[in-house]
Design a protein around this nucleic acid. Sequence first.
DNA 1: GATCCGTGGTC
DNA 2: TGACCAAGGAT
Length: 368
Amino acid sequence: MPSSSKAAPSALAPIHIAAFREKLMAWYRLNARELPWRGIHDPYRTWVSEIMLQQTRVAAVIEHYHDFLSRFPSVTALAAAPESEVLAAWSGLGYYRRARMMHKAAQVIAEELQGALPESSTELRKLPGIGEYTCAAIASISFGESIAVVDGNVERVLLRVTGRPEEATAAGRDFVRQQAAALVPPRWVRGGTNAAGDHNQAMMELGATICLPRGPLCLQCPVFALCRTRGEHPTPPRSKQRSLPAAYLLSLRTRGKQTEVLMEQRPAHASLMAGMYELPPLPMDVVKELEPLLRLRHSITNTNYLVAVFAEADPKSYALRKAIPTRIEMLHWTPTGKLGELPLTGLARKVLRRLKVMGASARRKAEI
DNA sequence: GATCCGTGGTC
DNA sequence: TGACCAAGGAT
């Protein structure tokens, strides 16, 4: 334990830096997960993976990564696509601003940079959606630049290893940045080995698989011997969640051979999921006596929605449809086969799949 | 610097 | 069930 008020020597001693790197890399070579964006040599794909991975779990990214790339195989293809298609491919990943900004950045790259990503962190940083972490990640992984990444994993690893108490201050962040910078190896790229890029990925991998937020697996940790805390690292409490009921209408009709479903577009100026499509929301008082087709939970940031989906009890009645409070211009009958092309909210996508209105592979069918 | 932006798995 | 979390960025 670092204890005491006497300037605990929290920075890693220089002698330990080489040892840390070597132990980390030896571990990484044996234990790196095989991920779709590992071992590729395509800056565009690395960029896509890094944007998708922002605040998003690996499993969720894997579900979208291949589909996104088959729809938009290159920067120029992405730049040429309508925004709604980009959002449709992003549906379910959340933080839709990421998709909008990446789309804009692709247009800048296509129009001003001859379709090639900038190769330095400084130039990458100028693109929309690419911040301090992402520019360093792409520059090191794709181009071998010796620059440290600091994400949530790296921060946790370094605070634990050095024993510095967590402080949400500029000084605390500076400390972590300096430690990370001291650890990145110099540029060295030869035949499939990229010292800085591999080191950065190894740091994140250690945080993601060993130095876990709770219950770190210290006995499996390659740098256990160098660690000051052995996993002690209290984290500040978060704001607490609330639960709210929500109701939606599932309304289907037949036109010729097609089944259509009534969808509602969210306002273009909404702060949340602007312009995306969902099932029409119903006022709670309209449905309070009714039995839903489906109940499920859906959490958005700090709110846990207790969702119920209703259909007309009598198919010839329009009682629920008439109860939709939204302006009619925002409502659209959509053939079920085209749902995959629509920028659906994650909740709408989840409900439509659960009720088999939309197949899990509807997107692929729509492509053909 | 604080706040906002989504989701779904896990326990 | 509620709490917690995951490779941040923009404003």
